[in-house]
Write a protein that binds this DNA or RNA. Structure first.
Length: 536
RNA sequence: GCCCCUGUAGUUCAAUGGAUAGAACACCGGCCUUCUAAGCCGGAUAUCUAGGUUCGAUUCCUAGCAGGGGUACCA
């Protein structure tokens, strides 16, 4: 509906310009948006405010002219009032009928409501978590994981093809360190319960070989600590596990990538090492590919990995990384460009998760083994609560997680508030089964209460919310949307008695609205990966 | 030094450059003989500082202050 109004306004402007002979005007960026308060209508535009400064007219005069034109164009059964307010806003008020009909539309589409094809042309590689296989997943991994998972769901409902990918760094120095750690020799680095467990299970045939132990331990950790936690505890589906060692190196992607860089004369020798001229592509300095000792850097593997991605045919790469990797963005972009990638790359940097206990930050260190793992947290407060909590905040902010508070509040947090809507709606359905409702007499024009109309407006917005998220990648908007949906429902529920055996037509109409709300909320929760319950 | 993120209510967080800055928790006061009170309704409290751009700034720009992260021939 925003696009529609925008079009009308543009047409009106053209006519005003012609009639008044105001000369040329450039295509101005004006917005049609939802007003901050209900009294300002359903939609509003700032077109007059923006344009007036360029024309010999006051913004109120211009608004009036636009309004006159619009009133000719727009049908009155859709919009009942166009209003001009103070500095020059033009507010649009839709008719009740317009909104009432939306209930039918939503229920006809059922669980497909919200689906679209707007991103049909995107083939997305969505890489997230990608934690080193040297220990269990921590809270930061959880944050990126949930974010990536929901982002993927949003894209899928909007028509994109998405591959969720986890890159396993199983080839580098850290695997040797892991070997030492499991052996508990002098060069041990990692500590913690999982290391102790592995130490007791070292296979006898590799007993003193830290290299082999490292490889073995990485496999064990991946198999027992990472994959099951992602799948069963976090409820995240990874489509593609890419091993640095077995895919990128053994299958030659790394070598091919280096070869191409050399062919393009983008590498050079200096101080006995081979460098990539990443500074030519916006990086702050060049990067080493092959070290003086002949071994290849982690970045060399990354070049191979980028080359691998390009060759899968993706036209959109998404990299969800922790804040400690942000310095990597430029060189990643540089190598993608150097290797000829034409598509879009988006980086999502998730700021750190801090654990707070008794008002103070708990310093965590993987090496010291005093880390709270995502699995521990899920076991303590429940999967849905962790997921929702992490998804409520913008990834740009540091997330303070108060463990105690999370546990105390698990009985009165937003997840339950939202699920309570489904519980209420389910129990209404149960009661309504006992009443005889004749479907063909459905009369939605009976939905006239402010709370009813407000609720319809809110549930009808889901497709637009999904569209916005697919563009700006701000997943936390969806949790906020779910909360506000629950707000509107509970508020409606309190004021509008749904079942009234003396007034069957109204009961029917209101029940239809309850079902529509349930539909939209279920869809929202499905995308968020939160359980949909029937009873509380 | 340089780069990135953040600074909003007592606390944790919202707010595509727009109208009276929203929630939640905590605090105060109402609402259950009627569909689940895990709910609803009402109240008090906030944009780090100084400039700038704009009809209009929490949002953009500059400088400062404060917190976090990064700055390897580590991964």
């Amino acid at each position: 509906m925003r696009q529609e109004i925008k079009k009308y306004i543009q047409e009106s402007l053209q006519e005003i310009i012609q009639k008044e002979n105001l000369g040329k005007f450039s295509a101005l960026e004006f917005q049609v948006f939802y007003p901050p308060q209900e009294k300002f209508g359903d939609l509003t535009t700032n077109v007059a405010l923006i344009l007036a400064s360029k024309l010999p007219l006051s913004s109120l005069d211009l608004a009036q002219k636009i309004k006159n034109e619009l009133e000719v164009k727009i049908k009155s059964e859709k919009i009942k009032k166009i209003e001009i307010v103070k500095p020059g806003y033009i507010n649009f008020f839709y008719t009740q009928k317009y909104w009432q009909e939306k209930v039918t539309i939503i229920n006809k589409q059922g669980e497909k409501f919200g689906d679209s094809k707007i991103n049909y042309d995107k083939f997305i590689n969505n890489e997230f978590i990608s934690a080193n296989p040297t220990g269990p997943l921590h809270l930061g991994n959880g944050r990126g994981g949930y974010w990536g998972d929901v982002l993927s769901n949003v894209w899928k409902t909007t028509g994109a093809q998405v591959v969720n990918e986890y890159y396993i760094n199983d080839a580098g120095e850290q695997i040797l360190k892991l070997g030492h750690s499991v052996l508990k020799d002098k060069e041990a680095v990692y500590q913690g319960g999982y290391i102790d467990k592995l130490n007791k299970k070292i296979p006898s045939n590799i007993k003193n070989d830290y290299q082999k132990i490292g490889k073995w331990a990485a496999q064990e950790i991946l198999k027992k600590e990472i994959k099951p936690v992602i799948k069963d505890k976090m409820n995240i589906n990874i489509d593609s596990w890419i091993s640095e060692k077995n895919e990128i190196i053994k299958n030659g992607w790394r070598e091919k990538a280096l070869q191409i860089l050399r062919e393009k004369k983008l590498t050079y020798q200096q101080d006995g090492a081979e460098w990539f001229q990443s500074s030519q592509f916006g990086d702050e300095k060049d990067r080493v590919l092959i070290k003086k000792d002949g071994s290849k850097t982690y970045f060399a593997s990354d070049c191979g990995y980028v080359f691998y991605k390009i060759n899968q045919g993706y036209n959109y790469l998404v990299e969800i990384w922790g804040a400690d990797h942000h310095g990597y963005i430029q060189r990643f972009q540089a190598v993608a460009k150097a290797l000829g990638f034409q598509g879009k790359i988006k980086f999502i940097i998730t700021q750190l998760v801090r654990l707070i206990e008794n008002g103070e930050e708990v310093k965590m260190s993987k090496r010291k083994g005093n880390v709270i793992y995502i699995e521990d947290l899920i076991n303590k407060v429940g999967s849905d609560v962790v997921r929702f909590f992490f998804l409520m905040r913008s990834v740009n902010t540091h997330l303070d997680f108060d463990l105690k508070l999370a546990q105390e509040k698990s009985n009165q947090n937003p997840v339950y508030y939202i699920q309570y809507v489904l519980a209420r709606s389910h129990s209404i359905s149960e009661k309504i089964k006992k009443i005889n409702l004749e479907k063909d007499e459905l009369d939605l024009s009976l939905l006239q209460h402010d709370k009813e109309i407000a609720l319809i407006k809110q549930i009808y917005r889901l497709p637009e919310v999904l569209k916005e998220i697919s563009e700006n990648l701000e997943v936390h908007r969806l949790t906020h949307y779910a909360i506000s949906l629950a707000d509107y429902f509970h508020s409606f529920y309190e004021v509008c008695k749904i079942i009234d055996e003396k007034n069957i037509p109204l009961t029917q109409a209101r029940y239809e609205l309850v079902l529509a709300t349930e539909n939209v909320l279920k869809k929202t929760l499905k995308i968020l990966g939160i359980k949909r319950i029937k009873k509380m």
